[in-house]
Structures are given as C-alpha cells and as structure tokens.
Amino acid sequence: MTKQQELSAQDAFQLYGAEASDWLMKRQQIIGATLGVLLVGGLIAATVHYFSSRGEEAASKQLGQALTVLERPVVTGVDLQPAEAGQEPPFKSEKEKDEAIVKTLSDFRAAHGGSDAAVTAALPLGKAQYRLGDYDGALVAFDEYIAKGEKNQPLMVSAREGQGYAHEAKGQLDQALASFQEMAKLDAGGFLQGMGQYHQARILVAQGKKDEAAQLLADLKSTQTNTAAGRLATERLAVLAAEGVKIPEPKAAPAAAQDAG
C-alpha cells in the first residue's frame, strides 16, 4: 500500500477520532468567565449572556439564532410530516445540514466580521466545511479560530484537531503532524484526552515512520489506559506488531487510574 493509499483509506481508528471530535463540537461550547463546558441546549442563552457582557449584544443574539441550525436533526428513510408553525423541518441528509450550517454561519460572519462572536462561529463553520470536502475553506476557518480565539478554551483542542485533519486530507502530512503536536500540548478532556498523541502516531505511520509511531503509541497506552485514545493505541499497536514492527517499552511512567469522562 502506498503512502497516499494509507492516507486516503480512513481506518476505524481515524474515524473514531473524527466522530468523537464532531460529537463534542456539536454538543459543547465554552462560554463565560468559568469557561464551563455547556451542552448545545444551553449554548444559545450562554452565548448571548457572554457576549452581551462584552459589548457585543447584537452579534451575540444573532449568533445564538445562527447556532440553532446545529440543533435541527437529520431524518432519513421516512416521509416527513410538515413542520409545526414556527419550527424548521428536519434535514433530509447530513450533507444538506452541513450546507445549511456553512451558509448560515458564513452569512453571520460576513455581517459581524471582526467580532468575538464571528471568531466563535469559525469553529463549527470549519467543521462543516471539512465534512463537505472544502478543506481549504476549513483551514481558513480553523486558522482564524486558533489565531483569534481564547487560548485557554478547551475547544481550542478541537480547532487544532480540525486543522490537522484538513491538512491530512490535503496530503500535507508535515503540517498535519505539527497541528496534532500542538493539539497534544493543550489540556484536553473527555473523548479528546490523549487524541493529539494518537493522531501524531497515525501520521507517522502514513509517513512510513512506524518505529516512531510505535513508541508514541506505547507511551500513550501506558499513560492513558482508561481513555478512548489509550484503547485505540492498544489496538493500533496490535496492528503494527502483526506487520512485524517491534513494540518498544513505554518511556513515560504509567499513570494512575484515569477516567475518560
């Protein structure tokens, strides 16, 4: 298998990481002085409160309205009943939903360019652009969020991951590796805990550097035993071992019992 084939053939491990990241992006947001993690159901009200306190009341209210597109479900395979008065109908496909997200958030950002609310909107916009295959557009959005967003926001981890995925999809493996290295430096939690290191190992495998990847995975397995990333590392190590790669001893000391959240 060529390096390009390895890159284009997304395995179960890569897909798990992408789905986990998308789950967090759609359902969580960081708002307010405490930087608490909120479910999308509470995101709109929290967004309005946060940005209103910073003198961006108009932008915050409209961002709250724009973000409601994330809550609309996708229903396939059944005949849909007409939507009730005042409600939007479900989307007929994930593609239709992503296209609506891109249009809604692009229009919002054009109307409120330079505002903090526009920067916040760049993250879900980039995610939708990536899913639609617009990797250049996704990189523009992720780069803006990374450059202008609050550096200590937990969702900065998701932005770095999205940036890495977009570079990877374009075949820019060195840039993808750099993004995942930056991701690993940030304080992640939940599904993304340890995923920066796991993604680095994936890229190293795609670059033919399987021994380096094995060391990263061995360290990850040792320090993140009870996380999704640790379990994925264990599975990936088994694949590498079956390919004849010598699995090294971990350099990092084993961590105490951890909870994936």
Rank of each mutant, 00 (worst) to 15 (best):
M1H: 11
M1G: 12
D11S: 14
A12Y: 05
A12D: 11
F13K: 04
E19G: 04
L24H: 05
G36D: 14
L43Y: 06
T47Q: 11
F51E: 00
S60M: 10
Q62I: 01
V69N: 01
R72M: 03
R72L: 08
P73T: 06
P73C: 05
E84S: 15
E84D: 14
K95P: 01
E99W: 06
E99R: 13
A100Q: 06
V102M: 00
S106Q: 13
F108Q: 04
R109V: 05
A110E: 15
G113S: 14
G114T: 09
V119P: 00
A122C: 14
P124M: 12
A128P: 01
R131V: 02
G137Y: 07
A141C: 08
F142L: 05
E144N: 13
E144G: 09
K148T: 03
K148H: 06
E150Y: 11
Q153L: 13
Q163P: 00
A169S: 12
G171T: 07
Q172S: 15
L173P: 00
L173R: 15
L177W: 07
A178V: 14
F180R: 01
K185A: 04
Q197N: 12
Y198N: 11
Y198V: 04
R202S: 06
A206V: 09
A206C: 01
E212D: 15
E212Q: 14
Q215E: 07
L216V: 11
S222A: 15
T225S: 15
A228E: 10
A229H: 02
R231A: 04
A242R: 13
E243L: 09
E249I: 01
K251P: 00
A252H: 04
A253G: 02
A255D: 08
A260V: 10
A260F: 12
